[in-house]
Amino acid sequence: MKKVKESIAKYIFLIAGIVAIISVLAITLYMFLKGAPALFQVGAPQLLFGTVWKPTAAEPHYGIFYIILSSVVGTLCSVLIGVPIGLLTAVFLTDLTNSSPLGRTVSKILSSAVELLAAIPSVIYGLIGLMVLNPLMYKLEKHFFTGSETHQFTGGANMLSAIIVLAIMILPTVINISASSIRAVSQSLRSASLALGATKLQTIFRVVIPAARSGIMTGVVLGIGRALGEAMAINMVAGGAVNLPLPFNSVRFLTTQLVSEMSYASGLHRQVLFTVGLVLYIFILSINLILTRLRKKGEKAND
């Protein structure tokens, strides 16, 4: 009886596991099936590298190059801002606040703030961006472009706003993962460095961070994934016109492209949107691949 129970239980676990595998396979298959046809109908070069997006014109153009570029540039810039801030915060939490009771209190407060930051829904980020960041950007925009004949005013909903919102949104990921990998660096390496007469900061930047490198890189890559996949907040703050990703341009990302047009698109237009989804999906897949590699490397380094 016991044995039967055991084997039934085993199959239940197996089925549970299969659900996840089937889902991911089905989604991958679906994305490729739905996203690939437009590549042939429009032509891959025209679609991927075309810069004109006029899906509903009498003679429609389906060029998504600026959209891809906006996603890539927006993500990279937000990572360039978010990672240094996140890394320094992680170091502060792990190595600079652990030597006094006051420091530990500060560290605890900061940690819960970071956790809360992770829990805030992206629509709230969008809302704050919309109410606070955009007016600020509008002021800057007026400052820089008053009298300009070529600039299209956006009211502050631009690339820069999107980058700043994304940079803040990836902070918790970068901080938490960096902090745990920095904590995992053996205390004896820190002692060895200090015993050689290195200062605390030299120890952090020359020994601890390099030793935690693969973990920190994991945090960065996950941050990239989060920024790339974010739709709601960007949709609210980035304007939404298809433009070259310059700081004060209204821009559209891969994600917001789907959000803003999927509801009414039909025919080839709809198929092209699936291609946009496929491009996003391939980006995310590659990031996961990098992640798996990094983890393997990290495990090797820890052996």
């Binding site: 053996s186 004896s188 390496l189 002692s191 060895a192 460095s193 200090l194 015993a195 050689l196 007469g197 290195a198 200062t199 030299q202 020359r206 020994v207 390099p210 030793a211 380094a301």
Partner: peptide
């Protein structure tokens, strides 16, 4: 600590090359 060096119970080389390990102290 430049004058008084220390060797620990567990060998604790830095996870870097042999050269960089030795050059670490002079570099800092």
């Amino acid at each position: 600590r430049e004058h008084v060096g220390m060797v620990f119970q567990q060998p604790n080389p830095f996870p870097m090359s042999i050269y960089d390990n030795i050059a670490y102290g002079p570099r800092v």
